[in-house]
Design a protein around this nucleic acid. Structure first.
Length: 396
RNA sequence: GGGGGGAUGUCCGAGUGGUUAAAGGAGACGGGCUGUAAACCCGUUGGCUCUGCCUACGCAGGUUCGAAUCCUGCUCCCCCCA
């Protein structure tokens, strides 16, 4: 039926690396020979439930495995999340409660379901608390596996160690726990971002020590966020969530640097088809449309693009604008109104007004007179900066 | 157990008694140009009832006309030696 070599080549086409060389093809061939599905593992962190395009890169890859008949195993890191991960040094990361973790995990699962096939043959979801909540002696047995020198080879650790910056024992233990996940579920393949390379490869060591076959490891390049420099992440605010409205997806995609367009298309498995390479703007628009169609629904791309053009090319206003109830007073203090309507501080609002960044029905707001007659604001469209709009309505 | 270093605005990071809402940078935001790209230019960037007022330099107290800067206690963090 399927050809392991061709499948491996297809799957690896946009990957950063496959380890060991030829490992994926070997696993595919083994599975074919034994007439079974591969178990393809992805560990997910239930501290940040909202899926953005960065997650999609990996999920899309899993979907490709599913389409070839293989089984995806999502591992919710509920146990590890409860302990908290101090890496990255984001200081006061709160340790989540079991309820929060569970809620996040469900949200994640639900969103991932929009990319993955939700067929029990093809998708299994597990919690690592199922096996990590082990007795001390079992843990200590595992603790023999990693060698300190080996852990210190991990780039992140090596740098911090050299720079005399802290590394907690807990961080040292994480790769071991993740690796044990691979043992527990008998992973054939594990997927992750390139930042996970060490951990994924370490899973092989744990598997070997535990006497189970070693997984192949496929790492995907990290998707660069819309700021064009750092990896996409919610905490950096440079993400596009898959649950966002089409207009938002379209607009934010149009903001990425041109150089990112092809990389995004490749990692997100979007075919830009015949859009000429010499026309970066059209390529980006095609990408934006495709993303809208995929995550907001078929046909959304076309619509979002029209709205976008109306707004930014023709200088109009969006069709759908959030509404904000006008307070009843006869005279309104503009900074206060802006603050409420857009969720900024009054000082911020004042600055924006002073800089000509606020428009009422297209007219730049007067910076010297901040008090406005309420009747001049009836059903007015208030605009802050280039892309924030609100329609003022009278509460009935 | 011993010794040393540190905690400043969104982040990084200057500042060791007064002109400090606190240098500089990053980020962000507003404006210009434009393709909501890049590059570039200008401006802003604690809050507010805004020509002024309030709150701020880990926490609490003290010295002083005056403290982020000095003293005391506390909390937290890091490094080194053992």
């Amino acid at each position: 039926m399927s050809d392991p070599r061709a499948d491996a080549r297809f799957l690896a086409r946009n990957a950063a690396a496959v380890n060991p060389d030829g490992g994926l093809e070997e696993r595919l061939a083994t599975a074919a020979r034994e007439g079974r599905r591969l178990r393809v593992k992805l560990g997910i962190d239930p501290t940040a439930p909202d899926i953005h395009l960065g997650h999609v890169v990996v999920l899309q890859k899993l979907r490709e495995f599913q389409d070839l008949g293989h089984q995806v195993v999502l591992i919710v890191g509920d146990y590890t999340a409860r302990v908290g991960d101090p890496s990255g040094r984001s200081a006061t990361r709160p340790v989540l409660t079991a309820e929060e973790i569970e809620h996040n995990a469900r949200t994640y699962q639900e969103q991932a379901g929009r990319i993955l096939r939700d067929d029990p043959e093809l998708l299994e979801v597990r919690r690592n608390g199922e096996w990590l909540d082990m007795p001390m002696d079992a843990f200590l047995r595992l603790a023999r596996i990693p060698k300190v020198a080996q852990l210190l080879e991990r780039d992140d650790f090596a740098k911090r160690y050299a720079g005399q910056r802290p590394i907690s024992l807990l961080e040292f233990v994480y790769p071991l726990l993740q690796g044990y996940d691979s043992v527990a579920i008998r992973a054939d393949v594990e997927i992750g971002g390139t930042d996970q390379t060490f951990n994924l490869l370490f899973g092989r060591d744990v598997q070997r020590a535990e006497g189970v076959p070693e997984q192949a490891v496929m790492t995907m390049p990290l998707l660069v966020g819309i700021d064009g420099s750092q990896k996409m992440s919610k905490s950096l605010g440079n993400q596009i969530g898959i649950g966002e409205p089409a207009d938002e997806i379209f607009g934010r995609t149009m903001r990425i640097p041109d150089e990112l367009t092809d990389q995004w298309a490749s990692l997100l498995a979007i075919d830009l088809g015949d859009v000429p390479a010499g026309d970066p703007r059209s390529r980006k628009r095609a990408l934006a449309r495709a993303l809208c169609d995929r995550f907001a629904g078929a046909g959304q791309g076309e619509q979002a693009q029209e709205a976008f053009d109306r707004l930014f090319r023709d200088g109009g206003v969006p069709e759908e604008i959030a509404e904000h109830a006008l307070p009843g007073d006869p005279v309104l203090h503009l900074p206060a109104l802006l603050a409420e309507a857009f969720g900024v501080s009054r000082s911020e609002a004042r600055r924006a007004i002073g800089q000509g960044g606020v428009r009422i029905n297209g007219e730049v707001a007067n910076a010297t007179n901040l008090d406005v007659d309420a009747k001049d604001l009836q059903d007015a469209v208030l605009r802050l900066g280039k892309r924030r709009f609100v329609r003022l309505v009278t509460p009935s």
